[in-house]
Computed example of a mutant assay.
Amino acid sequence: MLLLRPPGVYRPQGDTDLLSAALRRTPVAAGARVLDIGTGTGAVSVAAARRGDCRVTAVDVSARAVLAARLNTMVRGLRVRVMRGDLFAPVRGQAFDLILANPPYVPGHAPMPSLHSRARAWNAGLDGRRVLDRICAQAPAHLAPGGTLLIVHSALSGEAATLEALRAAGLTAWVTARSTEPFGPVLRARAGVLERRGLIRPGQRYEELVVIRADRASN
């Protein structure tokens, strides 16, 4: 898929493909309300909108990402509502049948990057969970009865922590997809730090990506 990607907007990679594949395996009813959190270029929103008669909303904190997602969906003739804001803030009070999320999850440095830093698209704090934990805490309130959350991230960021948080919120959660991917430029540059912190083995230059599915009961 050819997508407009301005500088500083996350480039679709293996995690985008893994989440899109999980989306294709997930039943989506006609008229379903779909939310794509951290849309980036809008790649996952495009995949969702192509599923048929569903109402897709995409959100990103980056103005450049919002512009890219709007253009990438419009040129394909897809009706996607693209909004700028921090996670669920633009859709406060709204519920969705399907929530899709590919948040920043790379373990990095404790201080968050500045608002205009490119690293904002991937750097997620010291343990990689700064955004993940917020999604786990906020997503359940935005799931309609019978709704589903699909979230992709690296196992380096703690799949057990995601599962525990979602289950504690009353959702049924499990890993629905896995994929092993070679390190990209960001993780290669941080490999030494990850080794010293015990997050990877010496010489390891690959990570496991997971898609976690969480369902809300229908009543």
Rank of each mutant, 00 (worst) to 15 (best):
T41H: 03
A160L: 12
A141T: 11
A30F: 08
P111A: 15
P113F: 11
T162G: 03
V56L: 12
R33I: 02
W174I: 04
P182S: 07
H153P: 05
A48Q: 00
P145I: 06
V28P: 11
V210N: 11
V44N: 06
L67R: 14
W174H: 14
D133Q: 13
C136P: 02
V131E: 03
D36H: 05
V186I: 15
D60E: 13
H153E: 05
A47E: 12
L149V: 05
G158K: 05
R50Y: 02
D86Q: 06
R64K: 13
S45V: 01
L194D: 02
R79Y: 01
P27D: 10
A63T: 15
G85P: 07
E181W: 13
L18C: 07
G38P: 02
R5K: 15
D127N: 09
R33M: 06
V34S: 02
H142Q: 03
V210M: 14
R118V: 15
A137M: 04
V61Y: 02
V66T: 13
L18Q: 07
N72A: 04
F183K: 03
L23A: 06
G158Q: 09
P7V: 13
R134F: 08
N123Y: 10
A169V: 03
A47L: 00
L3V: 07
V46M: 00
V9C: 03
T39E: 00
A177S: 12
D36L: 11
A47R: 02
V91N: 12
R33Q: 13
D127P: 02
R76Y: 00
A124V: 12
Q94G: 01
A161L: 13
L71M: 09
W174L: 11
A177G: 03
A139C: 12
P107I: 05
P6G: 10
L87T: 11
E208T: 15
T16G: 10
F183P: 11
A214W: 08
D60W: 10
Y206F: 14
S20L: 00
A32E: 00
G198A: 03
G85M: 12
D97L: 06
S154Y: 05
A121H: 07
G158Y: 07
A144I: 00
T16D: 07
P111T: 14
V56C: 06
L23I: 07
G170S: 11
E181R: 13
L187Q: 00
E207L: 12
G125F: 09
G198R: 05
P12W: 01
V66L: 13
V28K: 03
S114T: 13
L3R: 03
